[in-house]
Measured scan of single mutants.
Amino acid sequence: VTLFVALYDYEARTEDDLSFHKGSKFQILNSSEGDWWEARSLTTGETGYIPSNYVAPV
C-alpha cells in the first residue's frame, strides 16, 4: 500500500472532494483520473477526491 501525506491544507469545493489538513495521510484508491485522485483518509476513514499536487509519498 502506497501512503501519501498532505503538503498543504485543502478545503473541499464539491461533495465528492475531501477536506484535509497538512500532515494528513491517505491511501490512494485510484490515481488514473489525472490530477484528482480517489483516496481514503487514514485520519477520518472518509473516501473522496484529492488534488494530487497537494500530496507526496510518505
Score class of each variant (00 low, 15 high):
Phe26Lys: 00
Val5Tyr: 12
Trp37Gln: 03
Gly34Pro: 15
Ala56Asn: 05
Thr43Ala: 13
Leu3Gly: 04
Ile28Val: 10
Glu33Leu: 14
Asp35Leu: 12
Thr2Phe: 11
Lys25Leu: 15
Ala56Phe: 08
Leu42Thr: 07
Leu29Val: 08
Thr43Tyr: 08
Ala12Thr: 04
Asn53Gly: 11
Glu15Ala: 13
Asp17His: 15
Ser24Val: 10
Gly34Glu: 12
Phe20Ser: 00
Ile50Leu: 07
Ser32Pro: 10
Ser41Asp: 14
Glu11Leu: 10
Glu46Ile: 08
Glu15His: 11
Ile28Thr: 01
Glu15Lys: 13
Ser19Thr: 09
Glu38Val: 15
Gly34Ala: 13
Ala56Tyr: 09
Leu42Lys: 03
Gly48Trp: 03
Leu42Gly: 02
Asn30Thr: 08
Asn53Pro: 05
Ala6Gln: 01
Leu42Asn: 04
Tyr54Asp: 01
Thr44Asn: 07
Val55Gln: 00
Gly45Thr: 03
Phe20Glu: 00
Leu3Phe: 12
Phe20Pro: 00
Leu18Cys: 03
Tyr10Gly: 00
Ser19Tyr: 02
Gly23His: 04
Ala39Ser: 02
Ser41Gly: 03
Val1Asn: 14
Ser41Glu: 10
Gly45Cys: 09
Asp16Val: 13
Gly48Glu: 01
Asn53Glu: 10
Ala6Val: 02
Val58Ala: 09
Ala6Arg: 00
Phe4Thr: 04
Ser31Gly: 09
Tyr10Trp: 08
Glu33Cys: 15
Leu29Ile: 11
Leu29Cys: 08
Tyr49Met: 14
Val55Cys: 01
Phe26Ile: 05
Thr47Gln: 10
Ala6Pro: 01
Val58Met: 11
Asp16Asn: 15
Glu11Val: 14
Gly48Gln: 02
Glu11Thr: 12
Val55Ile: 10
Ser24Asp: 15
Arg13Asp: 08
Thr14Lys: 13
Arg13Ser: 11
Thr47Ser: 08
Leu7Gly: 02
Arg40His: 09
Gln27Asn: 06
Ala39Ile: 03
Tyr8Asn: 06
Asp16Ser: 14
Tyr8Lys: 07
Thr2Lys: 12
Glu46Ala: 10
Asp16Leu: 14
Val1Thr: 14
Glu11Pro: 04
Arg13Glu: 11
Val5Gln: 07
Trp36Arg: 14
Asn53Trp: 15
Ile50Asp: 00
Leu7Tyr: 03
Phe20Lys: 00
Thr2Ile: 13
Glu11Ser: 09
Gly45Arg: 04
Ser19Pro: 05
Ala12Val: 02
Phe26Val: 04
Tyr10Glu: 00
Ser19Asp: 04
Trp36Gln: 06
Ser24Gly: 07
Gly45Lys: 05
Thr47Gly: 03
Ile50Lys: 00
Gln27Trp: 14
Asp35Trp: 09
Pro51Phe: 06
Ser52Tyr: 07
Leu29Asp: 05
Pro51Trp: 06
Glu46Met: 11
Phe20Tyr: 01
Phe4Ala: 09
Val5Asp: 03
Tyr10Ala: 01
Tyr10Arg: 03
Tyr54Arg: 06
Tyr10Pro: 00
Ser19His: 08
Glu15Met: 11
Asn30Gly: 09
Ala39Asn: 00
Ala39Glu: 00
Thr44Tyr: 03
Phe4Glu: 01
Leu29Asn: 05
Ser24Trp: 15
Thr2Tyr: 11
Glu38Trp: 15
Glu33Ile: 11
Val58His: 07
Glu33Asn: 15
Gln27Tyr: 14
Tyr54Met: 11
Ala56Lys: 10
Thr44Lys: 03
Asp35Arg: 07
Asp16His: 15
Asn53Ala: 14
Ser19Val: 02
Ser31Phe: 15
Glu11Gln: 12
Leu7Lys: 05
Glu11Met: 10
Val58Gln: 08
Gly23Val: 01
Asp9Lys: 04
Ser24Tyr: 13
Ser52Asn: 06
Val58Cys: 13
Glu15Arg: 10
Tyr8Glu: 08
Arg40Ser: 05
Gly34Val: 12
Leu18His: 02
Tyr54Pro: 01
Pro51Leu: 07
Asp17Thr: 15
His21Ala: 13
Ala6His: 00
Ile28Pro: 03
Ser24Arg: 03
Val58Trp: 13
Asp35Cys: 14
Gly48Met: 04
Val55Met: 09
Pro57Ser: 07
Lys22Asn: 04
Leu42Glu: 07
Thr14Phe: 15
Gly48Ser: 01
Ala56Trp: 09
Lys25Val: 15
Ser52Gly: 07
Leu7Thr: 04
Tyr8Met: 09
Gln27Cys: 13
Asp16Lys: 15
Glu38Arg: 11
Ala56Leu: 08
Ser41Val: 07
Val55Phe: 10
Leu3Val: 14
Ala12Phe: 02
Ile28Asn: 01
Asp35Phe: 14
Phe26Glu: 00
Glu46Asp: 08
Tyr49Gly: 03
Ile50Cys: 05
Pro51Ala: 04
Ser24Met: 14
Gly34Thr: 12
Asp35Asn: 09
Glu33Trp: 10
His21Pro: 09
Ile28Trp: 02
Arg40Gly: 01
Glu46Gln: 12
Trp36Cys: 08
Glu15Gly: 13
Ala56His: 09
Trp37His: 03
Gly23Trp: 04
Tyr10Ser: 02
Asp17Tyr: 14
Lys25His: 13
Phe26His: 01
Trp36Ala: 05
Ile28Arg: 04
Phe20Asn: 00
Gly48Arg: 01
Leu18Val: 05
Leu3Pro: 05
Glu33Thr: 12
Pro57Thr: 05
Trp36Ser: 06
Ala6Met: 02
Leu18Trp: 05
His21Met: 12
Phe4Gly: 04
Ser31Asp: 13
Phe4Tyr: 15
Asn30Leu: 06
Leu3Met: 10
Lys25Ser: 07
Gln27Phe: 14
Leu3Gln: 08
Asn53Ser: 14
Ala12Cys: 05
Arg13Ala: 11
Leu18Thr: 02
Arg13His: 11
Glu15Tyr: 09
Thr14Met: 12
Lys22Leu: 05
Lys22Glu: 07
Asn30Arg: 08
Ser32Tyr: 10
Glu46Ser: 07
Ser19Trp: 03
Ala39Thr: 01
Phe20Gly: 00
Phe4Asn: 01
Ile50Gly: 01
Glu15Pro: 13
Thr14Pro: 03
Arg40Pro: 00
Phe20Val: 01
Asn53Thr: 10
Val1Gln: 13
Phe4Ser: 03
Tyr8Cys: 15
Ala12Met: 04
Glu15Val: 12
Gln27Thr: 10
Phe26Gln: 00
Tyr49Glu: 02
Ser32Trp: 10
Leu29Phe: 07
Phe4His: 07
